[in-house]
């Protein structure tokens, strides 16, 4: 079954100010969308609107022709990895992963989680002792914990070096092959493959 995410004529309003408007695009299964744009052009806001965190917007967001409501309570097929790493500093990586498994309500083999982003070597370390790149990889490994159709990644490439970007790329390819779709924002040159590019500068009201 193919899935379809439609964004129609979206306008985002923050603090009484319009951030961007007239944004329309469509994502289908197996597609990757890259969102670029200057700082403050609304990349994060767009992802958070789609994820359901921001409700103050005009326009329509349809997933398989169903309207998205607050926090996606009806659909819940979204996985959002934001700029916060969702890691508890005083716990080890493994303990963090265990806590996530409760939140995603699945218990899958730890190798399946640690494999794709190669985080097995620091599984026993405290998060506070990890580097920023390692934290980012642990944070992204959340993607493998449970199945979800849409991945929303906010700046996933920050702190990752070239070969780790490749690892993430193959993880996303696998997800898209299984019928998923990926929307990610990035500002670096060293990007993953994408099917469609949305430049927020064209919609932003700066």
């Amino acid at each position: 079954m193919t899935n379809k995410l439609e964004i129609n004529d979206l306008e985002c309003i923050r603090n009484e100010k319009s951030i961007f408007q007239n944004l329309t695009f469509k994502v289908e299964s197996s597609q990757t969308i890259l969102i670029t744009g200057k700082n403050g052009s609304g990349k994060t806001s767009l992802l958070r609107i789609i994820a359901g965190f921001i409700v103050n917007y005009k326009g329509e967001i349809l997933f398989n022709s169903k309207k998205i409501n607050d926090f996606n309570k009806l659909i819940a097929d979204f996985k959002f990895v934001g700029q916060k790493n969702s890691l508890k500093e005083n716990l080890t990586v493994q303990q963090n992963i265990e806590l996530w498994q409760y939140l995603y309500q699945t218990t899958i083999d730890i190798d399946q989680i640690t494999g794709p982003l190669n985080i097995k070597s620091f599984l026993d370390k405290d998060v506070s002792s990890l580097s920023d790149g390692q934290r980012k990889r642990v944070s992204l490994s959340r993607l493998t914990i449970s199945q979800s159709k849409v991945w929303l990644l906010d700046e996933p490439l920050v702190y990752l070096d070239a070969d780790k970007v490749k690892l993430l790329g193959s993880l996303i390819d696998k997800h898209n092959k299984d019928g998923g779709m990926t929307i990610y924002s990035s500002n670096t040159k060293n990007n993953l493959d994408y099917n469609k590019l949305i430049n927020m500068d064209n919609y932003a009201l700066l």
Binding site: A51, G52, F53, F71, N72, K73, A76, F78, F80, G82, Q83, K84, N85, S86, L87, K88, E89, L99, W100, L103, Y104, Q105, R142
Partner: peptide
């Protein structure tokens, strides 16, 4: 809220 785990909890399928 500060480390971002609340985001995971909030977009789960469950009423707030």
């Amino acid at each position: 809220y500060e480390d971002g785990n609340l985001e995971i909890i909030l977009i789960s399928q469950f009423p707030i």
